[in-house]
Simulated assay, not measured.
Amino acid sequence: MSSLGTTTAPVAPEPLVEPERPGLLTIVKRVSLSLLIACLVPAGLFCSVTVLAGVWPAILAALAWSYGAIAWRAVTGRRTSGLLILTAIVLTGRTVVALLADSTFLYFLQPIISDGVVAAAFLLSLATARPLVARLAGDFYPMDHELHLRPGIQRLFWRLTLLWAMLCLAKAGATLWMLLALDVQTFVLVRDASLQTVNVLAVAATIALAVRVARKEGLLHCATGPAPAV
C-alpha cells in the first residue's frame, strides 16, 4: 500500500560557476615561456654553435633542441604548445632539404619562403570564421565556443592575424636582402639579433592589444576576489 501525503522535495539545480580566468601576469608567463622554448633558445643555440663549430652543427643542434623539448614535455606530462610543434616541423623540413641538397644557402633561403607561405596562410585565413591567431590562442588563454563568438574577440583575432601576416612579409623581404648581401656568419648574427628584436616587439604589441580587449570583455582575472557565480 502506498503512503499518502508523502512528497519529494525538489532538487535545487547546482549553480553554474564561471570558469576561472587567468590574470595578466599568468598570460605573460605563458607567452614568454612558449616563445623562450620554441623560438629564442633554438635561435640563440644556432647562433652560438655557428660561431663555435660552423653552420651544419648549428643546424643539427637547433633541431635536436626542438625535439628534445617536445620529448621532455611529453615525459613530464606537460602540454606541448602548437608553436613548439610548428617550429619543430619547420626546422625538420629545412634540415632535410639542406642535407639532401648539401647547401646551407638553401637552409637559410627556406625561412624566407616559409615566411611568405605563412603570410599567405594568415591572409587567406582572414576569409574564414577562425583566423590563424584564433587557432593558436588556446595555447595562452583558455578559450571556449562562447569566447570565440564574441564580436570583440573576433575583431581582435582578425587584426592580430593581419598584423602577423604583414610582419612575416616584412621579415621575408629583410632576410632575403641580408642573405644576398652578407657572408654566412655575419648574416646569422645580424639576422638573429634583428629578427628576434622585431619578434619581441611584435609579441609586446600583440599582448597590449589583447589586454585592451580582454579588459573590455571582462576576461582578465580580478585580483580583489574570486570570479562570481552565474
Rank of each mutant, 00 (worst) to 15 (best):
R30L: 07
A58P: 02
A121K: 04
V31W: 00
A98W: 03
V51A: 10
C47K: 05
G68R: 01
A53V: 09
C47R: 13
T95A: 11
A62H: 01
S114P: 06
V97W: 03
V118G: 01
T80V: 15
A43N: 15
L86K: 10
A43I: 14
L36P: 02
A61G: 04
V118L: 15
L45T: 14
V41E: 06
L99M: 14
W65F: 01
F108A: 03
V31I: 08
V97Q: 03
A101T: 14
A61R: 04
A119E: 04
C39K: 03
A74K: 10
V90E: 06
T76Q: 09
A98N: 07
A74P: 03
L106Q: 11
T50A: 15
A64Y: 00
R78E: 13
P42T: 13
G44Y: 14
I89L: 12
A64F: 04
C47F: 10
V55E: 12
R73F: 03
A119R: 11
L84A: 10
L106R: 08
F46S: 13
R94P: 01
T50C: 12
R73M: 14
I70E: 00
R30V: 04
A74N: 07
L36F: 13
F46I: 13
I59K: 01
I85S: 05
V49Y: 12
P111Q: 09
T80D: 04
